[in-house]
């Protein structure tokens, strides 16, 4: 009696066969779902979805053909992951969210698993191994996509923080040789460094003779903030410009006195407008209304 020799198929082979027999149906379902998720939100057009589906299929087949087992360090697997990274990047650039992309990848996973149900020849063991393989691949993809979103989010937050730093301390030349620096919020070390660098460069560039620092927008002051203020005043003086501190609100004044901080010989004025007047006096500039000028004549 001759025993029929049956070759045990690898999980990759099972998946490739499943894929080959149902490629048409799988592609159609993926396209359809892709349109539902991405086209309705104008993230991708139909042609792009078809291209992406096709590329995904090719890359997946390459991964499955690369060996009996999936080599997670292999070029084919890396290419598949890179494809999803770039795909998710594009979705994000066009205003898509992580939810949409994860929904899409979960759907892809579901399509493959549903394909298993239609294949009655598969044993429990084979179904289980295919399930594990597919879940493993899509877990990696989900992790990659999540990391891409996280990195992009961090980049956005950093960019916003940088922009906030720039816009929260606008240095403006309001008169020839007079710069104003309204400080809003709080002054920590990193912000002080950034503001001082900008301010000193502007003094040099604009040949400024007076800098009016307005702290009306400073919410609270502690010894560190006041120390930073003094450092800024000194830096301004070292550049040869005169520093005028304005907008010291009663709460700030109380904090400064309770902290026993001596601003030394810093010129202070109550408001920005008073500070500007002081700057004009220092520069020898006299301002008057048209009527006043006419009367003088």
């Amino acid at each position: 009696m001759v025993k029929k020799k049956t070759e045990k198929k690898s999980t990759n082979q099972i998946l490739v066969e499943l894929f080959m027999t149902q490629v048409g149906a799988i592609t159609n379902v993926i396209d359809e779902q892709g349109e539902k998720i991405f086209v309705t939100d104008n993230l991708l057009n139909t042609d792009e979805i078809k291209d992406y589906s096709l590329e995904f299929m090719e890359l997946l087949v390459n991964v499955l053909h690369a060996g009996e087992k999936i080599n997670r360090r292999g070029m084919e697997y890396k290419a598949l992951r890179r494809f999803f990274t770039e795909f998710s990047n594009q979705i994000q650039v066009r205003g898509g969210t992580l939810d949409e992309f994860i929904r899409y990848t979960q759907f892809l996973q579901k399509v493959f698993l549903e394909g298993l149900e239609h294949d009655a020849k598969l044993t429990f063991e084979e179904s289980r191994s295919v399930l594990l393989l597919v879940a493993g691949i899509f877990n990696d993809i989900s992790l990659d996509v999540f990391n891409v979103y996280l990195e992009e989010k961090e980049r956005t937050i950093q960019a916003q923080q940088d922009e906030l730093k720039q816009t929260s301390t606008p240095i403006t030349e309001i008169w020839d040789g007079v710069l104003t620096l309204p400080i809003i919020g709080t002054l920590d070390s990193s912000r002080t460094v950034a503001v001082m660098e900008n301010l000193l460069s502007r003094i040099e560039q604009d040949r400024a003779r007076v800098v009016v620092m307005d702290i009306t927008g400073v919410v609270a002051i502690d010894s560190q903030v006041s120390h930073h203020l003094i450092q800024m005043m000194r830096a301004i003086c070292l550049m040869g410009a005169r520093a005028i501190l304005t907008g010291i609100r009663p709460e700030i004044a109380r904090a400064l006195t309770s902290l026993n901080i001596n601003l030394g010989d810093v010129v202070t004025r109550s408001t920005l407008s008073e500070g500007l007047k002081e700057a004009f006096i220092y520069l020898g500039v006299e301002t008057c209304t048209v009527e006043e000028k006419a009367r003088q004549k």
Binding site: M196, E197, E204, Q231, R234, A235, C237, L238, D265
Partner: peptide, 17 residues
């Protein structure tokens, strides 16, 4: 005075020059 020198000096000074 250069901006770099003014900056570093202002940061290190304990009293006004």
């Amino acid at each position: 005075i250069r901006t770099t020198a003014a900056f570093s000096l202002a940061m290190s000074l304990k009293t006004a020059p």
